[in-house]
Structure formats: C-alpha cells, structure tokens
Amino acid sequence: MLPAPSRAQRTALPPETLDPEPGPGSAAIATGAPPAPASAPRASAPVAKPRDPYFDNVKYLAIVLVAVAHSWEPVMGDSRAARAVYMIIYTFHMPAFILVSGHFSRSFDASPGRMKRLVTGVAVPYVVFETAYSLFRRYAGGEPDAPITLLDPLFLTWFLAALLIWRLTTPLWRTLRHPLPVALAVAALASVSPGIGNDLDLQRVLQFLPFFVLGVLARPEHFVRVRRREVRLLALPLFAAALAFAYAVAPHLQLGWFYRSDSAQELGAPWWSGVTMTLLMFGCALLLTAGFLSWVPARTTWFTKLGAGTICGYLLHGFLIRGAEYAGLIDGNAWLSGPAGLALVAVMAAVAVTLLCTPPVRRVMRFATEPDMAWAFRSSPAGR
C-alpha cells in the first residue's frame, strides 16, 4: 500500500476528490493500466496518490450538466423538447455526481484525520455558502425578511448537507450485509412520508441515498467495465429511446419526481406511486448514468484539471443564475425559451461554470471551500 500523503499534500487536493483507499494498483485499475507489483518497496517519503483523470473528467462534465439544467429551469417555459432534454439531464446528472462522491467516501471511518476533512471540506463550506445565499436573497433578491437558517438549505447547498449526512453513515453501509436494498427501502419509505419536513432537506437526502451507497460499494474495476466498447455502443440507442420517451411524457409528468424533494402525497399522487417511482427512477438513473460514464474519456484532456475545482463551480454558479433572475434578465424574455435562446443559455452556463472551476478561482475561494483550520483541531500524536 502506498504511504498516506502528508497533511500539506492532502489539503492541496479537494477533499471530495481524494481516494481514501489507495491500495496497490488501485489507480492503475481505474485507468486500465497494469497494477504495480505488490512487493514494490515502500517509498522513503510520503507521496500523494496520483489523481485519476477519468474521475476528474466525470466531475467536470457532470458539473457542466448541473449548470446547464439550472440555467434552463427558469427559461424553458412550455417548450416540450426543452422539457424532455431537461428531464433526461435531471435523471442522471446528480446521481452520477453522488455516485462518484460515494466512491471516494468508501473508506470514511470517523478517524480524526477524516473527521477534520469532513468538517473543513463539507461542513464549513455549507455554513459559509448557506449564509451567503441567504444574504444574497435578502439584499439582491429584494426579500429583506428572508430568514438566515442552517436548517433549511437554500437552492443548491442541499448537496453539502446531504454529503455530510451520507459520509457520516458510510461505516454503516460497509457493515450491512445487503446495503443497497436497505438504502432503496429507506428511499421508498421517504417518498411516502410527507411528515419528514424540510430540515436539512432530509427528504432529498434520503431519496438520493441509494446512489451514494452504490458509489460506496463500487470498486475501481466496475468503472473500467462500464467503459467497454459494447457499453458505449449500447448507450447511444439507450439515450435515443430515453429522449423519445421523455418527449412523449413531458407534458404529463411532474418535474418534482426528478427533484426528489417531496413525497408522493405532496405531489398530489397516491402513496403507492412513491414506491413505484422510487424504483423506476433508480433504474432509469442507473442506466443513463452508466451510459454517461461509458463515454467519459479516461485520458487526460483539456478539461481534466478543471475536475479538481468542481466544488467552486457548483457553489458559485448559483449566484449567476439567481443574480440574472433578481436583475430581471429572464422574466418576460420570451426569446430565451426558443431553440436559439436555450442554446445560448446553455453555452453561457457551460462557459461560466468552466471559468469557475479554473485554478485561479479555486485558489481565491480556498478560504471557504478548503480551509485548513489547523487552529481548530488538536495535533496528532505524531505531530506532537
């Protein structure tokens, strides 16, 4: 096993992208290269585990889809084609992001070092950006009475609250004999429980839970298998069929099913439909996620380095979208709902989130997204 990276090396990488379980040849397995011999001598100095370009590519492309979907939401209007594409993106973009997050959380064991990373990489950014979005809504959005609370995540900050909860439960999922069926049962029960409430967006946390658990269970070789040529070829008719189906049902299917933030009863549906839709949506999301992952390049590309800054792109692009709404750039502009307008919005969102993922932005925002906070934690026995 490679020696653990030093504290300085670990904090130089975003906590959600570090592989906490770097066994012999694990990086090679994820990239398709032959593993190093198990008898290789231990390095004399701690070194950081090499980043796998495949997962950085996955995260960048997923965050672009997140930004495009968020930018389309207020402008797509009654466009049936746009609604169908929007439904396809929402079926798999967050499940893919959550699955990768679960994969890199699979060795979380509540040890002091990992608890520190959880606080500095997830809890602190949640507090900072939840407060920032609330203040932005109050002063830029013209809602002076808007509350500032950490219990009701605003806009996209729900993911940080969810990741905090999911990661704390990781040891449980690694202990259970059948973790994925249990997680699906939890999600199904949540979908028929309107009394869960909005604290920490718990409804969404529980309904998205199976994708995190699946990521915890996934091994590097699973991501190699999904990139096989036959899977890529099958992904093309799969997405074509999904788009045709989405276009057919777009006028009739509520978007709330894709957000997973409400129970079936709150969506005006019978309780049993919550269980049915939970299983159907999980199956559809799993298929489309596999199709998406199969086409992500495993080699280093021009956008690979941007995958390390997806936390900045995710947390900052919401200010641009909400700012455009608050400034009145969207309401009453029917042209944006047309094909040319939607294409322009998508390109602008993709360019904006790409710029927000660049190293300069990441360095500037490190105080909020990757703070060191050594002053808040006891030093390790080795450090003392």
Rank of each mutant, 00 (worst) to 15 (best):
R10K: 04
T11I: 06
T11S: 10
A12D: 08
P14A: 06
P14K: 05
T17N: 04
P20Q: 05
E21V: 03
P24L: 00
G25L: 01
A28V: 00
S39A: 08
R42H: 01
V47W: 00
K49G: 00
P53F: 05
Y54Q: 07
V64R: 11
L65M: 14
L65T: 06
A67E: 07
S71I: 04
S79L: 11
A82R: 11
R83A: 15
Y86P: 10
I88M: 12
T91A: 11
M94S: 03
V100G: 01
H103N: 05
F104A: 02
V122T: 11
V124C: 11
P125F: 10
Y133Q: 15
S134A: 14
L135E: 10
I148Y: 13
P153L: 13
L154W: 15
L156I: 14
W158N: 07
A162V: 00
L163Q: 06
R167M: 03
W173C: 06
P181C: 03
S193E: 02
D199K: 04
D201Q: 15
L209M: 06
P210F: 14
L217E: 05
H222Q: 12
A235H: 04
A242H: 09
F245D: 11
Y247K: 12
P251H: 12
L253M: 09
A264H: 01
Q265S: 04
L267F: 03
A269L: 08
T276V: 08
M277T: 03
S294F: 02
W302M: 07
G318T: 13
L320C: 09
A327Q: 03
P339K: 06
V353K: 10
T354K: 03
L355F: 12
L355V: 14
R362H: 01
T369F: 10
R378N: 13
S380L: 13
P381G: 09
